Simulated assay, not measured.
Amino acid sequence: MRTEELQQEIREYAMKIGIDKIGFATADVFTELKERLRRQQELNYQSGFEKGTIEERTEPVRLLPEAQSIISIALAYPSRMKNAPKSTKEERRGLFARASWGIDYHEVLRDRLNKLADFIHEKVPEAITKIMVDTGELSDRAVAERAGIGFSGKNTSIITPEFGSFVYLGEMITNIPFIPDNPVEDSCGDCRKCLDACPTGALVGEGGQLNANRCIAFLTQTKDYLEDEFRIKLGNRLYGCDTCQQVCPKNKGVDFHTHPEFEPDPEVSKPKLIPMLRISNREFKEKFGFISGSWRGKKPLQRNALIALAHYKDKTAVTEIIEVMKNDPRPVIRGTAAWSLGKIGTEEAFLAIKEAIKVEKDDRVKYEMEKGLEFAETAFK
């Protein structure tokens, strides 16, 4: 079979199995990305979640020695939640970013890529394929850009002409020498809305560079204490951040509900905050285990829930937070609870911290309690 015919059949099959966009790219070295990653490393902009060396992340032949081409796919996901519950004074709610709505996208994209690989192997038995979704060494964004899925915006997301930046990306390296697609022209122009709107200034310059150490989307996934400047910016976010996508003009009016797997359960994607504080491991797995936002476990989400309750100054949560501060075995959670109580700032909170600090043994927790006492005393006096 001629390459052009195979390529067309792959495109048609991809549409049949629910792939919204597909593109083909060479497996050449990602030279520009390599330089950007080196610069990122020098500036300490990395998140720590990256997989592989810079060479493995930019040279496809290191991952598949026979590599000739890379197939990139994109699936669109919703930007609006149907029947979203409101956060009220009686029941404050947190929020998972849109990329964590519905079933874990890693599973859905792997399913599509596996089906695509099976189809290719039927047509070309000697074909070799290697599949990656987000957690692989290759940059999904760099591959998608080269394959013509979209252009890389100043918000560091791939922006497609059809679906904006609300797309999941995955790729397949293969030994088949496909004809590469043409890249999409960058059309950010002079727009700076995402750079200006970023809560922490994590978007650096206008070259699509990200300082992950300041990005709320990454910070929500960490397990240690958040610095105070980031706690103040967190708002009610439990996982991820959509600000740079929400303000992007290319996303105006974009909202696709073409994949049932990505439809959010409102009680999961916008959960009540207070129950998050006492959820057991089993309950957490049953309620949140199927979404991508659960991959780091419950600890970061509980820490973020405490910060969100402080953001709301939710006095109805004080009793529950006091229990967490006194009894939780994890220092980060106890310390963040004390900080949260201080920010809420009731007399009950102040007195509880004052008692708890007398028996606390962890120095960092004590430090957070001292801050909490200072905040609370100022607030209620």
Rank of each mutant, 00 (worst) to 15 (best):
K233M: 08
D242Q: 12
G253F: 07
L273D: 02
K272S: 06
L226V: 03
E206N: 14
K270M: 13
E261I: 06
T222L: 13
A217T: 14
K270T: 04
Y225L: 11
T200Q: 01
L226T: 04
N213P: 06
G208S: 15
D224R: 15
V268N: 02
R214I: 05
N213I: 08
C215S: 07
T220R: 00
H259N: 13
E263Y: 12
L234V: 02
D242W: 06
T258W: 12
V247K: 02
P249R: 06
Q209N: 14
E263R: 09
P264M: 02
P249A: 10
G235N: 03
S269Q: 05
V204E: 07
L203M: 11
L203C: 06
D224L: 13
F218S: 11
G201A: 03
G205I: 10
Q246I: 13
E227W: 09
P264E: 05
F230V: 01
T220W: 04
P264Y: 04
D242G: 09
C241V: 08
D265H: 10
Q209D: 15
D255T: 05
S269N: 03
P199C: 03
H257I: 09
Q209H: 15
L203A: 04
G235Q: 03
Y225I: 07
P264F: 01
E206H: 13
K223T: 14
G235E: 00
Q246C: 11
S269P: 00
R231T: 04
T222F: 11
D196F: 04
R237Y: 10
L210M: 12
G253T: 05
Q245I: 08
P271I: 09
G240A: 14
L226K: 06
C215I: 11
L226D: 00
L234W: 00
P249V: 07
S269K: 02
F230A: 05
D224I: 10
F256C: 02
N251E: 09
D196Y: 08
